[in-house]
């Protein structure tokens, strides 16, 4: 496989979480428990995951709640550090793990676009240049100077998605962000994503909406208890998933 066709390489990724049995978050508690060692419950959330993603792939990640999907995305985004294994990225990542990260209800739509754009990795110049396009895409021209707390949830999502979609990084990570929003909005988003894909960007998409996954993804990865249960063609993997329920 030609090296430059690869977008992401994941090698033997493992991640465990330790949940303490006692809460020792304050000084009083620490003194109280001073003489005893805290014990932990260890959850192995990801266990030796390896896979590759090619440029232009629209990869869908599916699996039951708790199978490790969100943790995998967070490691890909650089938010969590894996215990073992590595992730090799050929390109920059734009994470949409949640829409509107950093949005402040007390600031106007305009101010929030700036902050969010910069948090997602754009330079100030780039945000300024794309400002009008972002507002146009969100269809919120009339409300852009109002405080975000006055927005409906649909407006919020439209604004957040508009900023995120203009952060033109090579790899997009999305964690069930299309769950909110009406049908019109979902279609608009998926059209945009497919357009980006035609431009050669890679999209990794976590969703429970199996129809969306079947319609849009060219590759699907099924996670089960932290391991890869299946990876391949959407129809095959999804059918397999339905059958093992």
């Amino acid at each position: 496989m030609n090296h430059c066709d690869l977008s992401i390489e994941v090698k033997s990724l493992s991640k465990s979480f330790e949940i303490p049995h006692d809460n020792r978050y304050t000084i009083k508690q620490k003194i109280f428990y001073l003489t005893s060692q805290n014990t932990y419950e260890t959850y192995k959330v990801l266990d030796g995951i390896s896979f590759t993603v090619d440029k232009g792939d629209f990869l869908g990640i599916i699996g039951r709640n708790g199978s490790g999907k969100s943790t995998l995305l967070k490691i890909l985004a650089g938010i969590y550090t894996p215990d073992r294994g590595e992730v090799i990225k050929h390109g920059e990542i734009s994470p949409f793990l949640e829409l509107g990260v950093g949005f402040s209800p007390d600031l106007s739509g305009r101010d929030n676009i700036f902050l969010n754009g910069i948090i997602l990795g754009l330079s100030r110049k780039e945000v300024k240049a794309r400002f009008e396009e972002i507002i146009a895409f969100s269809e919120l021209e009339k409300f852009i100077d109002q405080k975000l707390r006055n927005y409906s949830s649909g407006m919020f999502v439209r604004l957040a998605f508009s900023v995120a979609i203009f952060v033109n990084k090579d790899i997009l990570l999305m964690d069930e962000v299309l769950a909110v929003g009406d049908k019109y909005f979902k279609e608009k988003c998926l059209n945009e994503l497919n357009r980006l894909r035609r431009e050669g960007r890679t999209i990794i998409f976590v969703s429970h909406d199996l129809n969306s996954v079947k319609e849009n993804c060219n590759k699907v990865l099924l996670l089960r208890k932290g391991k890869i249960a299946a990876i391949g063609q959407p129809n095959e993997v999804i059918d397999y998933y339905m059958n093992i329920q």
Partner: peptide, 8 residues
């Protein structure tokens, strides 16, 4: 809330 959702 930012650190949990975006790399910074």
């Amino acid at each position: 809330h930012i650190l949990k959702k975006v790399y910074m």
